Structures are given as structure tokens and as C-alpha cells.
Amino acid sequence: MVTVKMLKPYYIKADDDYVQVILAYQYFAVFINKKVYQFVPIESKEIRINRKTKRVENVGARFAFQKGKDIIYMTLSELVSLPDFLVQLNSIADPYYIDEIKNEESKNENAIINELEKLNLKRLIDKSLDERDFEAFQSLVKLL
């Protein structure tokens, strides 16, 4: 029986596509057969999650856990099958996920703001024509 005792990232690195959860010695421990095994960065030390799909990408990565001289290796796919591991990992990575709905809303807001700015510019051009202000007209037309 394997359960997660503690899962804390050493640090988190996020780029446009991935969230990388970097692990180090005292930040990750598991119970295996009622014994606590500490993570050791012998092979893999990062969990890479796709920011859009929220899926773990490097499921083949092998993690090493040590208790005394005994070392046990587990793949990330084995760890992902543990519910408590997934819950803790999702709570760590959740602030870094890209929410498509938020992106669409911000694109719509930007489009509305751009349209309002164009309409305002056209009104200012009309006003400069009404007032026969040629300099203001020319500077405003350049902005359009």
C-alpha cells in the first residue's frame, strides 16, 4: 500500500505551455508498507504538467524513494494513480493553469475596448471638422 505523506514543490517554473513542479530532498515523502520513504533526486526530479489540458506529460519519469539503504523506484504513472497524490499535485499546480474561458473573455473585452476607442476617435475627427481645426483633424486621422 502506497500513500503520499508529503508533497511540496522545491520550486515551480511555468512557461507558456507547461508547469514544472521541481522536487527536492525533504519536500516529498511516501508511505510504502507503513514505512516512510523520502524522495531522492537520483533520476527524475520534476513533474511536467500541460497548462491547458491539466495533464501530467512526463508519466514515464522514474522517482526514487529511500529509507536507509533501501531504495524504491516508482514511475510517475504509478504515482498519478494514487488519489492523494493527484489531489496534492492539482492544488499545487492549480494557480498556474490556463483557463480558456478567461482567455476568451479577455479577448472579447479587448475587442470591445478597441472598437470603442475607434468610435471615439471618429467622433473627435467629426468634431475637428465641425470646428474647422485642420491641425487636430490631421493628427487624429494619423491615429486612425
Rank of each mutant, 00 (worst) to 15 (best):
I125A: 00
L89K: 00
Q138N: 13
L129V: 04
S128R: 14
E78T: 08
Y25Q: 05
A111F: 15
F137E: 04
N58E: 02
M1E: 14
R132Q: 08
M74T: 15
K142T: 06
K102W: 12
D17Q: 12
R55K: 13
Q66M: 14
M6I: 04
I113H: 01
E109P: 10
I42L: 14
I125E: 00
Q66Y: 06
L82Q: 09
M74I: 05
A14W: 02
S77V: 06
Q26D: 13
N110S: 11
I112P: 11
I98E: 09
L86M: 15
S128V: 01
Y73W: 07
V4H: 00
Y10A: 08
S81C: 09
L144Y: 07
V80A: 08
Y73C: 13
I12L: 07
K67F: 14
E78F: 04
R48F: 03
D99Q: 02
E117V: 12
Q26Y: 08
D70S: 15
K8V: 04
E78I: 09
L82V: 10
D84G: 05
L129S: 05
F85A: 00
A24N: 11
R55N: 13
F63Q: 08
V2L: 09
I22N: 05
F85P: 05
D133Y: 02
I112V: 11
V2K: 00
S128M: 09
Y10T: 12
K118R: 11
D126G: 03
D15H: 05
R132Y: 00
S106P: 06
Y25L: 10
E104N: 07
R132S: 09
I125K: 00
V87T: 15
N120G: 14
Y37F: 15
L82E: 07
Q138R: 10
I72K: 08
Y25I: 10
E105K: 13
A24I: 01
Q38W: 07
S106C: 04
R123V: 03
N103R: 06
A24F: 10
D15Y: 06
E43V: 10
V2I: 07
R48Y: 01
K127C: 00
D15S: 01
T53W: 12
S128Q: 02
D126N: 09
D16R: 03
E135Y: 09
F137K: 01
K107V: 11
L121W: 02
G60K: 15
A64L: 05
Y11E: 11
K69Y: 15
E57Y: 13
K107Y: 06
A29E: 13
D126P: 03
A111N: 06
R51N: 13
N50L: 01
R51S: 11
D133V: 01
E43D: 15
K118M: 10
N33F: 14
